[in-house]
Lab assay of single mutants.
Amino acid sequence: MEVRTIKVFTTVDNINLHTQVVDMSMTYGQQFGPTYLDGADVTKIKPHNSHEGKTFYVLPNDDTLRVEAFEYYHTTDPSFLGRYMSALNHTKKWKYPQVNGLTSIKWADNNCYLATALLTLQQIELKFNPPALQDAYYRARAGEAANFCALILAYCNKTVGELGDVRETMSYLFQHANLDSCKRVLNVVCKTCGQQQTTLKGVEAVMYMGTLSYEQFKKGVQIPCTCGKQATKYLVQQESPFVMMSAPPAQYELKHGTFTCASEYTGNYQCGHYKHITSKETLYCIDGALLTKSSEYKGPITDVFYKENSYTTTIK
């Protein structure tokens, strides 16, 4: 009895394709271990004539594949690729409408935090270190965002349907971005203890939790000093293409032309909904596939993004 075979390709990165001759009487799992086709788990399936010449994702289970996976995804987590594939199996079914010149995501599976993050990423200057993220990001900007969303979920250790947080998501993504040249110098002034300067680099240099107003941050924000008295913390120097200011959701007025974009969060910790506000020729609110415009805006804002380049204080 002759062994019926077909020729397929296996890959971990969709760049390096490895030619395989597979036995049609055995499952993919018996031949390769966990195997995925377009995100779908085909591990328990036997090869079919229609699979001839198709590319299958496999887990990096030998040295060659491990090197290829690390170079593309910059992670050695053995569960990463499987999590990416199972997320992709959902995100490829989502709709990605162009809204006001940006790629958004039609609401499904509690994905409003991903839509808000995706919209924000198209408006701030950011370059990702893992080629996987950078490639998928370019495709997302062009309207094909399924891979990018699935990668975000995998890097953030999230599953489809789980509630997510924009600030946490951005923080994970910033860790995989090139923020080497970003720098922030802060000064804390206390009447009792004097003053202390701190220099922050990388992710810490672009994120701040405690106030939404970048102007206020430049002037000074009140913080408790270690001595128990009130101290003032203010920005001395900022070198970065953008800054992200966050605070627990509270009524906040966004003035046209003073910011790049913002995240609105309605609801409580267990259950809520994100919308995205962007400042173009007027203010726009993007909620999944829905767009509304207004000249002014007041609502429960939790993150505001500002364009920056270089700032030095005039406070002496």
Rank of each mutant, 00 (worst) to 15 (best):
Y155P: 01
N89H: 15
M244H: 04
G39H: 09
P47F: 04
S263P: 01
K127G: 08
L186D: 07
G39R: 06
G39A: 14
G194R: 02
Q222F: 10
Y284P: 01
A117I: 06
P130G: 02
D77S: 10
Y36I: 04
P47A: 10
V3E: 13
S104N: 05
Y96S: 04
R4S: 13
K44G: 13
K255W: 06
T27H: 10
E296Q: 12
P130T: 09
W107H: 03
R167D: 01
Q20K: 14
T313S: 13
F217A: 13
K280N: 15
D38W: 12
M245P: 01
A154W: 03
E239P: 02
Q31E: 09
Y297C: 04
L37T: 10
R4W: 11
S171D: 05
G29A: 07
T266R: 06
Q31I: 15
L283T: 07
K255V: 14
M244A: 01
S279T: 09
A140P: 03
I286Q: 03
E125G: 13
A145S: 05
N16L: 07
K316N: 15
W107Y: 04
E264I: 15
Q238W: 03
S295R: 15
N14P: 04
A177C: 14
Y214P: 04
E296M: 07
S240E: 00
Q175A: 11
Y214K: 03
E264V: 11
H90W: 11
K92G: 06
Q196C: 14
L212E: 00
F242V: 02
Q270C: 11
S213P: 02
Y57G: 06
Y28P: 06
D23T: 13
V21E: 13
F128V: 02
I6N: 06
V166T: 07
H48F: 12
N61E: 13
T159P: 05
E239A: 08
Q237F: 11
A145C: 10
P130L: 03
D77C: 13
V188L: 09
Q230A: 15
Q98G: 06
E264P: 01
T192V: 13
Q195V: 15
D287M: 00
F32Y: 09
K46V: 09
C225S: 01
Q196L: 10
Q238R: 02
G202A: 04
N100T: 09
M85K: 06
A115Y: 02
A136L: 04
Y265V: 01
N187H: 11
D135H: 12
Q238N: 02
Y138E: 15
S310R: 14
F128G: 01
P300C: 15
A146G: 09
L254H: 00
H51G: 04
R167M: 00
R184F: 04
L200P: 03
R141M: 12
P60F: 04
S263H: 15
Y73Q: 05
E253P: 07
H256P: 10
S263C: 12
L151T: 02
K93M: 07
H51N: 08
L173V: 10
Y84P: 01
T266P: 00
F174H: 02
S181Q: 13
Q251A: 12
V188T: 14
A250V: 10
C285N: 09
D303I: 03
L212T: 07
C271K: 10
Y57F: 15
E264F: 00
E125C: 06
A87F: 05
K93H: 12
C149G: 02
D63I: 09
N187R: 13
G33Y: 05
D63V: 08
E239W: 06
W94N: 03
Y297S: 03
P249K: 02
L114T: 03
T43E: 12
K298I: 14
L81N: 02
L126T: 05
Y297E: 03
Y172D: 09
R139S: 13
D63T: 11
Y208W: 10
S310Y: 15
K92Y: 07
K93F: 10
V99P: 00
Y274W: 01
G210K: 02
F174P: 00
M85I: 11
Q216N: 10
N16G: 08
G228N: 02
A115R: 01
D109W: 04
V160F: 01
E68C: 06
Y155I: 03
G272D: 01
L173F: 01
Y113Q: 04
I15A: 07
Q123K: 04
S294R: 08
S240D: 01
N129S: 09
V166G: 03
K307S: 12
R141Y: 06
Q222H: 07
A132D: 05
K95D: 15
A69P: 06
A150E: 05
V166N: 04
E144A: 11
N16V: 04
L186E: 15
E281C: 05
L200H: 15
E71L: 09
N61I: 15
N129P: 04
M26L: 09
T43M: 12
E204W: 08
H176R: 10
G272K: 00
